[in-house]
């Protein structure tokens, strides 16, 4: 796996990150649709995005 690639923690699918990706940015796994968040760029770490809570909204 390349340095700019991530592995989905749910399905294991691989995805290449765009060069301008930032910590905290939200992503969707192209394979399973999981909502992911970039936790760190160096080293590259990816996790689940925060769960939607009752008072979330706009």
């Amino acid at each position: 796996m390349n340095a700019n690639q991530i592995e989905c923690p749910d399905c294991g699918g691989h995805k290449a990150l765009a060069p301008q990706t930032e910590v905290g940015q939200l992503l969707s796994c192209a394979d399973c649709g999981a909502r992911l968040e970039v936790l760190s760029l160096i080293p590259m770490q990816i996790g689940h995005a925060p769960q939607i809570e009752e008072d979330f909204g706009e």
Binding site: E22, G24, Q25, L26, A49, P50
Partner: peptide
């Protein structure tokens, strides 16, 4: 913010 949503990325 809670997350860097597309809106927050645009504001940034």
């Amino acid at each position: 913010c809670t997350m860097l949503t597309p809106e927050n990325m645009a504001i940034k």
